[in-house]
Nucleic acid binder design. Structure first.
Lengths: 238, 238
DNA sequence: GTTGACTCTCACGTTACGTCATACTTTATA
DNA sequence: TATAAAGTATGACGTAACGTGAGAGTCAAC
């Protein structure tokens, strides 16, 4: 789909699409050789996400952070957004209530304090952001780091813990959330003592299967773990 | 009340109060000789109005125009705002509905078209503004005055005929065929001497009931004709 | 009488686009 | 098939509604 079609479908302006592309929030999957932006269905789904978050008052910057967070899951996000929308409706109800009272107040049928007159406006500290940050924000990553670090200077123990954890998940899909979180921990762990690029990380996964010495050592934690890890690592890199 | 108190009470920042003062949207009734802003209860009521309109997506400029309009009435505004808030809640419900469908869609339990995925987002042409402009915009009063003045004797006759005809139908449903034909004639008639958009036409109907001067003149042809016409006009627009 | 919370007025920064201007590409029409 | 019309791209500047200090005056309290 070209910009105008997307614009008409979603109600956002073409300029907005350009803008989102400029700031890297929504880069179309494809372009014609003339430079025309072409949006895929997946791009549309992302745009929908963006609009939901925007409606809930998130800044574009924060939306970008959320969308690119490794812990981000679309389904999870949708369910959360639903809750947020319900919250917002409650707020709206509160405002409606306030205004109805105000109308009566104007007719002299009711007395109102100043505070009551502004009930429902307290937009100030919305709990939405908080929840989102906890779920997908930097804090989540930091916390897990902290926990991992608490295992002490004994790196081998920590390593084993991660392997163990992964082994317990190896019957799941390599791209399941749990698997990806676990493999993320593995990636962080490796980066504590060296600098693994994502590409190197993927290569490592390949080696787990290709090299028998690795395979055997890894599969000690559970049959098929090496293969599982390779797949999960490949997914993680993406 | 000084700025901080107002800020805490209402949830808006001190800077915002300064800003509203700067642009003349909300100038405190009083200041100390040191230049401190002092807000009266009336100022607070105005601020409440501002916040309601703001929540409904009006620009500060437009809010200022509304508030200073001679036709502006606080009570009327409140009632209108309540309707707008109810409208907005409907929109929210639509979004919630969309998101619930989307969740099912994600689980593969449902098929959705791209259009369905963006239902409820269509912020584009909000009817709120339109209504407000018609009610309090200077334009509404001027235009109808001008046109009324231009009436020649021929036109007046035709107009009366249409009114008469409508009055004879006012016991029917506003969306009956007869009523719609008659109101269609009225629309054509108006368009002979000016350009009435459908939206303006609907607004005119609203004014028939809202503005006593109209109501009285119209009801001369039959009790309740103004209300009947407003309803028929609303139906006609759709 | 001085500390700390509160206030003032500039004035520049920021976010999320809007609005041209200018130029190229694609589609429709004659 | 040429040519107009509609769509798109990239700057680049504009705007709305504040945020964020800086620097200075004011006020209540200990």
């Amino acid at each position: 789909m070209k910009v105008k079609e997307v614009s008409q479908l979603t109600g956002v302006s073409v300029r907005t699409l350009h803008h989102y592309d400029d700031i890297g929030l929504l880069t179309p999957d494809c372009t014609t050789e003339a430079g025309y932006r072409l949006y895929s269905d997946d791009n549309l789904a992302t745009l929908q996400q963006i609009l939901f978050f925007r409606e809930l008052g998130f800044s574009l910057k924060k939306i970008g952070e959320l969308l690119t967070s490794p812990a981000f899951s679309r389904q999870e996000a949708f369910e959360m957004q639903r809750n947020m929308l319900l919250e917002k409706r409650k707020q709206l109800d509160s405002m409606i209530n306030t205004i109805e009272k105000t109308i009566q107040h104007g007719k002299g049928e009711l007395v109102m304090t100043n505070e009551e007159k502004f009930k429902g406006f307290d937009f100030g500290e919305n709990p939405y952001e908080q929840e989102a940050r906890e779920r997908w924000g930097d804090k989540a990553v930091d916390e897990s780091n902290k926990k991992a670090a608490q295992f002490g200077p004994d790196l081998e123990k920590e390593m084993n813990r991660i392997y163990f954890n992964l082994a317990s998940l190896r019957h799941l899909s390599p791209n399941s959330d749990e698997a990806q979180v676990a493999i993320g921990q593995w990636f962080e762990f490796l980066n504590k003592m060296g600098n693994y690029s994502l590409e190197a990380f993927r290569g490592l996964g390949e080696m787990y299967v290709a090299d028998e010495r690795f395979t055997k050592n890894i599969d000690k934690f559970g049959e098929g773990l090496a293969v599982f890890m390779r797949d999960a690592m490949a997914v993680y890199v993406e």
